[in-house]
């Protein structure tokens, strides 16, 4: 596969054209996956023998938590692309993704609290995972605030990219620091733990729950993708508008 062909999409016009074509299909697919995943998960799975019906919030909690991290990773990649190759679309995609990532983090935190209340008897505990997500939320806040504060678009893109790089390192550091600071209540990663699907251990998550979970994760991924593309389009147009207005003023 020729990866160089990908750079063609860094052209704003090409990006908008392609996005217009892809978006409808992507949105429908996202709605479909989320609808199926959530309805299946909420209404057609048995209650857990220990956790009861509360376990079903997993269909919101896990996908949003995954997306919260993955969107930050995506911002890291697009920031790097901006620093190295200086494609405007890349920087704008990072800008477009940040609020979505922040909302995902917020959803993960809120659903976590709602789940935690019946399970652990408390809305909030200073558990490493929860704390890490709170810190991630703060990073998103700072990143977005920096974008908003700077008027010159290129300067803002440069500064936020570097902040994203440095922030990623510190976010990782914080993760380890927080782990060190408090061993927590939170269960281990539900899905990625050693072949949860095929394994036959006591702890493994049974297929009954896993399949709708994967469908709903796919739905969240598609939804985020659709939102990011849509917002990137908007950012490109807003950026173009600002450039045109600046030019108007000059002439």
């Amino acid at each position: 596969m020729n990866f160089n062909a990908l750079w063609a999409y860094a052209n704003p016009r090409k990006f908008i054209e392609t996005a217009d074509k892809v978006l409808p299909a992507l949105s429908v697919l996202a709605a479909l996956c989320m609808g199926v995943g959530l309805v299946w998960g909420f209404f057609f799975t048995p209650d857990d023998y220990r956790q009861g019906a509360t376990v079903k919030i997993i269909y919101l909690h896990v996908p949003s938590a995954l997306m919260a991290i993955n969107i930050w990773l995506m911002m890291l990649v697009t920031s790097l692309v901006w620093i190295v190759r200086r494609h405007h679309v890349s920087a704008l995609a990072a800008r477009a993704a940040a609020p979505i990532g922040m909302v995902m983090t917020l959803i993960a935190l809120i659903t976590g609290a709602i789940w935690g209340q019946p399970m652990w008897g408390t809305w909030w505990a200073w558990d490493p995972r929860l704390t890490s997500f709170l810190i991630l939320f703060l990073f998103y806040l700072g990143y977005i605030a920096l974008w908003e504060a700077i008027e010159n678009d290129d300067t803002a893109a440069d500064l936020t990219s570097i902040l994203c790089l440095v922030g990623s390192v510190f976010a990782l550091l914080s993760r380890y620091a927080v782990n060190f600071w408090n061993q927590g209540l939170h269960q281990g990663a539900s899905i990625l733990r050693g072949a949860a699907l095929v394994g036959d251990t006591e702890e493994r998550m049974s297929n009954v729950y896993a399949v709708p979970l994967f469908v709903s994760i796919a739905g969240f991924v598609l939804l985020s993708l659709a939102l990011i593309i849509l917002r990137t389009q908007t950012e490109i147009r807003a950026r173009r508008m600002r450039a045109l207005m600046a030019r108007e003023r000059m002439n």
Partner: peptide, 17 residues
């Protein structure tokens, strides 16, 4: 104000240790 918002999350690991 922005400075505090940006710097405080970066201070987390140092503060913890």
């Amino acid at each position: 104000l922005l400075l505090s918002l940006l710097v405080l999350p970066l201070y987390v690991p140092t503060l913890i240790f």
